[in-house]
Amino acid sequence: MSSHDHEWDESAVRDLHAELVDLYGPVGASDAHGADSDADPGEGVRQLLTTILSQNVADTNTERAAERLFATYEDLAAIESAPLDELAETIRVAGLADTKAARIQRALAAIREETGGAYSLAFLDAMATDEAKAWLTDIKGVGPKTASVVLNFHFGKPTMAVDTHVERVSKRFGLVPESASNARAHDVLDAVIPDELTYPMHVLLIEHGRTHCAARTADCDNPVCERYCDCEWC
């Protein structure tokens, strides 16, 4: 059955999840714990900054930039108040350094202003998912993917982070219209994927994109592609 013949509702998504689990194995629970811990209220903020660093760059360079950022500055206040050119040089390995430095400082300022001086995102935990996403994406440079990473991975909220793999596979399977923007893809997947499957489906769709459903010369010789995909290689 091609994706164009497939009606996607909650039951169909559960079937797809089961078939992906058959192919790749079950996904463990997310490390999300519901809110910033009392011991380290800045943990969620650091995840947000790391996710900003990760925009359009390889994981290894993200890790190097994050390590350098948090080793260079004593605390989050020092990052916010650092000279912009100095901060950009610190995170240069992440690419788009000037842009990302400005985004990081805007994010820290927004958080500090919201909390009355604290660098903590714990207030997002009490918000509805849509409200929390809207608060984050109001920060210039924080898009739906960055917001969804923080909300799903750190707070356990049911919002799908749509990276290039998730978007490509979702469109090939017909979960998301081919013409949909990345922002629209977030909305469509959040609407159709059951809340408790948001994190495992994120992991499994990425695995499928990396293992079989590559951007070019896809390997469609697997049961999931045979049932759901109608890309040019199927």
Results as ranks from 00 to 15, higher is better:
residue 145 K to F: 03
residue 145 K to W: 03
residue 158 P to C: 00
residue 128 A to V: 14
residue 93 V to E: 11
residue 102 A to K: 13
residue 94 A to M: 10
residue 135 W to K: 01
residue 160 M to E: 02
residue 142 V to M: 10
residue 149 V to C: 11
residue 169 V to R: 08
residue 143 G to H: 13
residue 168 R to W: 09
residue 112 R to S: 09
residue 161 A to W: 02
residue 161 A to I: 04
residue 132 A to Q: 12
residue 127 M to Y: 12
residue 91 I to Y: 13
residue 129 T to Y: 04
residue 139 I to W: 01
residue 148 S to G: 07
residue 116 G to I: 12
residue 156 G to A: 07
residue 155 F to H: 07
residue 156 G to E: 09
residue 123 F to H: 13
residue 160 M to V: 08
residue 148 S to H: 11
residue 120 S to R: 07
residue 110 A to W: 07
residue 141 G to P: 13
residue 154 H to G: 07
residue 140 K to Q: 15
residue 135 W to Y: 04
residue 165 H to N: 15
residue 120 S to E: 11
residue 115 T to Y: 14
residue 168 R to Q: 14
residue 163 D to G: 03
residue 92 R to L: 10
residue 151 L to K: 06
residue 156 G to V: 06
residue 115 T to K: 11
residue 109 A to W: 07
residue 126 A to V: 05
residue 127 M to V: 07
residue 124 L to Q: 07
residue 152 N to A: 13
residue 159 T to R: 00
residue 117 G to V: 06
residue 132 A to K: 01
residue 103 R to S: 05
residue 163 D to M: 05
residue 157 K to Y: 02
residue 119 Y to M: 06
residue 128 A to M: 11
residue 116 G to L: 11
residue 159 T to F: 01
residue 90 T to H: 12
residue 104 I to Y: 03
residue 142 V to A: 11
residue 155 F to G: 05
residue 99 T to V: 10
residue 100 K to C: 07
residue 153 F to E: 02
residue 162 V to P: 05
residue 136 L to F: 14
residue 120 S to V: 02
residue 140 K to R: 15
residue 108 L to H: 09
residue 106 R to V: 06
residue 107 A to M: 03
residue 147 A to N: 06
residue 91 I to V: 15
residue 124 L to F: 09
residue 88 A to L: 03
residue 124 L to K: 05
residue 123 F to P: 02
residue 96 L to C: 07
residue 117 G to I: 10
residue 159 T to G: 01
residue 150 V to C: 04
residue 112 R to N: 06
residue 147 A to S: 06
residue 130 D to L: 02
residue 143 G to Q: 08
residue 122 A to P: 01
residue 96 L to R: 09
residue 112 R to I: 08
residue 166 V to G: 13
residue 124 L to P: 10
residue 131 E to Q: 14
residue 117 G to T: 14
residue 139 I to T: 06
residue 159 T to P: 01
